[in-house]
């Protein structure tokens, strides 16, 4: 006991003494002399940097000489029609993704259930909606009135197909059902990644199958489900540009309409790209925080948020100054 405390004593004493010491003192507090070696020179890095800077310069020069009216890009960025298009893109993406998530969980659970009927139904759904292009599915929903004049859910509802199948509804069904098929596979992988011992422990407590799924399995599956789902959502933001074929006026359609009428086609594609980048960036940040939320308990300490990283970096930057 006395030996350990004696062994620790110099370090303990050195710790508080360090900040008070004269500049250059910390080296003396280390119990060893640090090795001084000549660092490897990374000539490759310098060469690569030169090449990259040169290429970027050439690219910038090229664009500055092109017939692009950069001013238009700036002024049209917040054009009313463009902003409405952005809003529609967000709306259809969020709604279709929500639909995909709900369907995904439903069909994943159906596919994993012991019931052969639900298993077969889920298999067939995934087979069809994952196996055909989303573009074709959108067109089929939009043109449904060609084969069914009316939609007749016998006792509940009856209406003309044309009236029901608005651009938004066609877009939602096309994107949402397609997404559901992909989400079902992602959710299934997530559920299967959870240790079977968890289900056993929940059953042993007297939980029913449904409650076990909801309280124990799905929350743990989320950790595996979220990263690919974030990917899916970012894909969805971009895939939603396809729904212009069903006359839904989302971002791409709004910008290209303006581009054609005002003869600023490339300018408007730049506007669209800027907005797509903004949207995907914002949702990537959201995904980070979501992942962090569901990492609870899986790691001893949560990953730092960028803000926390900045703060620790600042404090570690400051500390050597104090020590020196």
């Amino acid at each position: 006991m006395s030996e350990t405390s004696a062994g620790r004593a110099p370090e303990d004493a050195a710790g508080p003494a360090a900040p008070a010491g004269p500049p250059g003192a910390p080296a003396a507090t280390l119990p060893y002399e640090a090795i001084r070696a000549i660092p490897v020179r990374h000539y490759g890095r310098w060469a690569a940097a030169v090449v990259v800077v040169a290429l970027l310069g050439a690219l910038a020069y090229g664009f500055s000489q092109g017939k692009i009216i950069w001013n238009t890009v700036g002024t049209k960025l917040f054009d009313h029609t463009v902003v409405t298009g952005v809003w529609h893109t967000v709306l259809i993406s969020v709604c279709a993704m929500a639909m995909g998530l709900v369907l995904g969980v439903l069909f994943a659970v159906m596919r994993l259930s012991k019931n052969p009927v639900t298993g077969a139904v889920a298999w067939a759904y995934i087979w069809f909606f994952r196996g055909t292009p989303v573009y074709v599915q959108l067109l089929m929903w939009f043109n449904l009135s060609l084969i069914f004049q009316t939609i007749n859910l016998m006792p509940f509802y009856k209406n003309d197909t044309v009236a029901v199948m608005t651009p938004f509804v066609a877009a939602l069904l096309g994107l949402g059902l397609n997404e559901g098929a992909y989400m079902a596979e992602i959710v299934r992988a997530g559920i299967q990644s959870v240790d079977p011992g968890q289900t056993e422990a929940a059953h042993a407590l007297g939980m029913t199958g449904a409650k076990t799924m909801r309280r124990i399995v799905l929350p743990q599956a989320m950790r595996v489900i979220i990263p690919p789902t974030g990917n899916e959502f970012i894909n969805m933001l971009k895939t939603s540009s396809l729904v212009s074929v069903v006359q839904y006026s989302e971002l791409l359609r709004a910008t290209s309409d303006i581009g054609i009428s005002s003869n600023a086609i490339m300018e408007m594609y730049f506007v669209a790209s800027v907005w797509y980048l903004v949207l995907t960036s914002v949702f990537s940040v959201g995904q980070f925080y979501l992942e962090r939320r569901f990492a609870r308990g899986s790691q001893r300490s949560l990953p730092q948020t960028p803000w926390q990283k900045v703060r620790t970096n600042l404090t570690t930057l400051r500390r050597p100054k104090v020590a020196r």
């Binding site: 056993e200 422990a201 042993a204 407590l205 007297g206 939980m207 309280r215 609870r296 308990g297 899986s298």
Partner: peptide
């Protein structure tokens, strides 16, 4: 199963819940 407690070789605690939440889960949910 409610009236039969079981303790496993590999613990099988619910990793997304604190120790207290693990113990509360049965009484609250079941």
């Amino acid at each position: 199963r409610r009236d039969i407690g079981m303790v496993f070789q590999r613990f099988n605690l619910f990793p997304h819940m604190t120790a207290l939440e693990n113990v509360m889960e049965g009484p609250v949910q079941v």
